[in-house]
Amino acid sequence: LETFPLDVLVNTAAEDLPRGVDPSRKENYLSDEDFKAVFGMTRSAFANLPLWKQQNLKKEKGLF
Rank of each mutant, 00 (worst) to 15 (best):
W52E: 13
V38P: 00
A45I: 10
L49H: 01
F35C: 00
N28W: 12
A45W: 07
Q55A: 11
L30M: 06
K36W: 15
T12F: 08
F4Q: 04
P18Q: 03
L51V: 12
R25C: 12
L1F: 15
K61G: 05
E15S: 11
D32S: 07
A13Y: 06
A45P: 00
S44K: 13
N56G: 10
E2M: 15
A47S: 11
L9M: 04
G62M: 05
Y29T: 02
F35I: 01
E15P: 09
S31H: 05
E33I: 11
Y29M: 03
R19V: 15
A37Q: 12
K53M: 14
S44L: 13
D34Q: 07
G40A: 10
Y29N: 05
Q55G: 07
V10A: 09
A47H: 13
V10I: 14
G20V: 08
E60T: 08
A37P: 00
N56K: 15
R19W: 10
G62F: 07
D34I: 06
F64E: 14
Q54H: 00
N48M: 13
K59R: 12
L9A: 03
A45G: 07
N48V: 12
L49P: 00
L6C: 06
R25H: 15
K53P: 00
T3D: 04
L17M: 06
N11K: 10
E15D: 11
G62N: 06
S31K: 06
F39K: 00
K53R: 12
Q55K: 11
S24C: 15
L51A: 11
R19Y: 13
K36Q: 15
L49D: 00
G62I: 01
N11I: 05
F4D: 02
V21W: 05
K58D: 00
D34M: 06
A14W: 12
P50K: 04
P5L: 04
E27D: 04
V21R: 02
P5C: 05
K59N: 07
E2F: 11
T12V: 14
Y29S: 07
P18R: 02
R43T: 03
A13W: 06
S44C: 13
A47P: 00
P5W: 03
Q54K: 07
N11S: 10
D34G: 04
K61R: 09
G20L: 07
V8T: 08
S44T: 13
D32G: 05
L51G: 09
S44N: 12
N11C: 13
A37D: 11
R19C: 15
R19L: 15
L30Y: 01
V10M: 14
L63W: 07
L63A: 02
A14C: 14
F39V: 01
D34V: 09
S31T: 12
T42H: 08
P50A: 07
D32F: 05
W52Q: 11
F4W: 13
L63M: 08
D32H: 07
F39N: 00
T12G: 08
E33H: 10
V38Y: 05
L9S: 02
P5Y: 03
D34L: 04
T12I: 10
L1P: 11
K53L: 14
K36C: 14
F46L: 01
R19D: 15
R25E: 05
L17P: 04
K59V: 12
L6N: 03
N56E: 15
D32R: 05
M41A: 01
G20W: 13
T42L: 09
P18E: 04
S44Q: 14
L1C: 14
